[in-house]
């Protein structure tokens, strides 16, 4: 999981879209998300899934394999959720479990819609580092306490992942994970140790902030971001293509 998180951060940091305004990307993502959810159409959802895959693989320099692996995580949840939608259960004299054309179609529709939405959010996540997202939240006047917490959590996650990794290696080197019983014991001590260390780290960080005139507000300069006219036109055309597709598909239930 931590590897997955670090991988997403790595992709976002190295994304060619990173330098573009995070707010523009946020508006684009939200518009697409709204369209995908509102139209609730399998063809439109599939169109979004395929185009997002192409954008992420061809333009965002993410390997197809990595992208599919990343999508497989939500797929597991969505798949089981959709099975539950497709299956109908009746309790009369006997328990009858059955599927109908409608329920199958409904579950496919939900699956396509969910994947469409997930693909859109993946595009945003894989092209915008977390600190840029927090910057967007600041612009949207989300309470400061939350955005500051996000900054600190982001920083802490990496510190704790690194410490956890070191502790784990130290434990493995002393046969701390040699069998299930020992592994469980070692794991619990590692977690306890990590908790104590995180408290100590927090105390040290607070001192370091105070040493630099911190008075209760986290103030940083933000990375320069660019507004790109061509990219904006392309994004608008893409949204228009979805609208056009909807017009073409007008009257079709799916």
């Amino acid at each position: 999981m931590e590897k997955h998180f670090e991988q997403i951060d790595y992709f976002a940091y190295h994304s060619p879209f990173r330098k573009y305004s995070a707010m523009s990307k946020f508006i684009f993502t939200m518009t697409l998300l709204l369209l995908c959810l509102y139209f609730n159409n399998i063809a439109i959802s599939c169109y979004i899934i395929v185009t997002m895959l192409l954008i992420n693989v061809l333009k965002n320099n993410i390997k197809l394999y990595d992208y599919i692996v990343m999508l497989s995580i939500p797929f597991v949840f969505v798949f089981f959720g959709c099975i539950a939608i497709a299956i109908e259960i009746h309790f009369e004299n006997h328990i009858i479990i059955y599927v109908t054309k409608q329920t199958v179609l409904k579950s496919i529709c939900v699956m396509a819609r969910t994947f469409g939405a997930v693909s859109i959010l993946y595009f945003f996540t894989l092209s915008t580092p977390i600190y840029q997202m927090v910057f967007v939240f600041q612009k949207l006047h989300i309470p400061k306490i939350l955005t500051e917490l996000m900054y600190i959590t982001y920083r802490y996650l990496f510190i704790l992942i690194e410490i956890q990794h070191q502790i784990k290696i130290a434990a493995i080197s002393r046969l701390g994970y040699c069998d299930i019983k020992t592994s469980l014991k070692t794991f619990s001590s590692c977690i306890a140790n990590l908790f104590i260390l995180s408290l100590k780290k927090a105390q040290k960080h607070y001192q370091a902030m105070e040493a630099r005139c911190y008075t209760g507000e986290l103030l940083f300069l933000q990375e320069k971001q660019y507004y790109n006219k061509t990219t904006t036109i392309k994004a608008t055309l893409y949204i228009l293509s979805i609208l056009l597709l909807k017009i073409v598909l007008r009257g079709q239930a799916l």
Partner: peptide, 15 residues
């Protein structure tokens, strides 16, 4: 690691 609190070098130095 006890001192750095910001996500990027620019924001850290500006703190």
């Amino acid at each position: 690691d006890n001192q750095i609190i910001a996500p990027t070098v620019l924001s850290e130095i500006s703190f």
